[in-house]
């Protein structure tokens, strides 16, 4: 049990660590090679996000703890790499240098985001409706299910990235090859999940629909689709991480732009400052996409 005093204990650690970080950055360090502006901006953003949560009293404790953990990491990194200058100069760049990459490389980064996200959109745009529609039909018709499900059981567990080297050789462009990899990676799981969910639908709902004498079209779009939508959207979240993994892996194999390419390319030149910045960028993009799915979930399926 928490005592009231403990409950209302103000969240101070995160602010202390933030202040310490600012002091460290301001102090003259042994390895000050890059401008600290963007690193400080990032720290201020984190602090602002924590303050926002604390003021709104929504997940305040968790936000404070996460912020504190992050600032602890920043402090150690800053102390070790910049202030003391004891870190390996190539493998562990200073935080200032890493964050400054965003200033210098933003056109390449932006192009990478555009290229990766458009591939992702193509993959999802084809695989998701196809998997959902075929899954619904197979869930509905035992004949189609008997044909497709055994095939899916063989093909679905094969990691789609396995196809990448061959598809890159086979397809006319790298983009079409990686789009196909993403499609293969999303289609089969979506199909199998949708079959399972269709078979598992409440039989009373289907009986009610049948009594209303709906046409096949109405059955699919007015009954199955809304009934399966929550499952599809929660599947979206899982598929998103899978496809992002596939995409970046594929990009490391042969792309000329994209987030995975950004990291791989600079790794080839042992520019780990840019590599770490690229990793941060991927984390940001994935988080933003996940946030979008959450918003979609709230808007599209208010009833569940």
């Amino acid at each position: 049990m928490k005592t009231p005093a403990e409950k209302s204990r103000p969240i101070v650690l995160v602010h202390l660590l933030f202040a310490l970080l600012v002091v460290q950055v301001a102090l003259p360090g042994k390895n000050e090679t890059a401008s600290p502006v963007l690193f400080l901006c990032a720290a201020v953003l984190v602090e602002a996000a924590c303050l926002w949560h604390i003021v709104r009293k929504k997940n305040a404790r968790a936000a404070g703890d996460i912020g504190a953990a992050l600032f602890l990491l920043f402090n150690i990194w800053e102390l070790w790499a910049t202030v003391l200058g004891r870190a390996h100069p190539i493998l562990v760049p200073t935080p200032e240098a890493v964050f400054q990459v965003f200033a210098g490389q933003w056109p390449l980064m932006l192009r990478g985001i555009g290229s990766s996200l458009s591939l992702l959109a193509i993959g999802f745009g084809i695989a998701l409706p196809l998997g959902a529609l075929l899954g619904m039909l197979a869930g509905w018709s035992p004949k189609l299910r008997g044909f497709l499900v055994p095939i899916a059981r063989v093909l679905a567990p094969v990691p789609a990235i396995i196809y990448a080297p061959y598809l890159i050789a086979l397809m006319p462009s790298f983009r079409s090859a990686s789009a196909l990899v993403i499609i293969l990676g999303i289609f089969w799981p979506t199909f199998l999940q949708t079959v399972g969910r269709t078979v598992g639908l409440d039989p009373h709902i289907l009986d009610s629909a049948r009594v209303l004498c709906l046409s096949d079209r109405e059955m699919v779009f007015q009954i199955f689709l809304p009934a399966l939508l929550p499952g599809l959207i929660s599947g979206l979240r899982v598929n998103l991480s899978t496809s992002f993994m596939l995409l970046t892996l594929a990009e490391m194999m042969g792309a000329t732009s994209g987030l995975g390419y950004f990291i791989k390319n600079f790794a080839d030149y042992a520019n780990y400052t840019n590599v770490i910045a690229g990793i941060l960028l991927v984390a940001l993009v994935v988080t933003a996409l996940n946030g979008l799915v959450t918003i979609l979930e709230r808007k599209a399926v208010r009833w569940s």
């Binding site: 709902i205 009986d207 009610s208 629909a209 009954i223 809304p226 009934a227 939508l229 009833w303």
Partner: peptide
């Protein structure tokens, strides 16, 4: 037909 329970469209 009215079923014993269920049969409403939850969405």
């Amino acid at each position: 037909i009215v079923f014993q329970q269920g049969g409403l469209f939850p969405w």
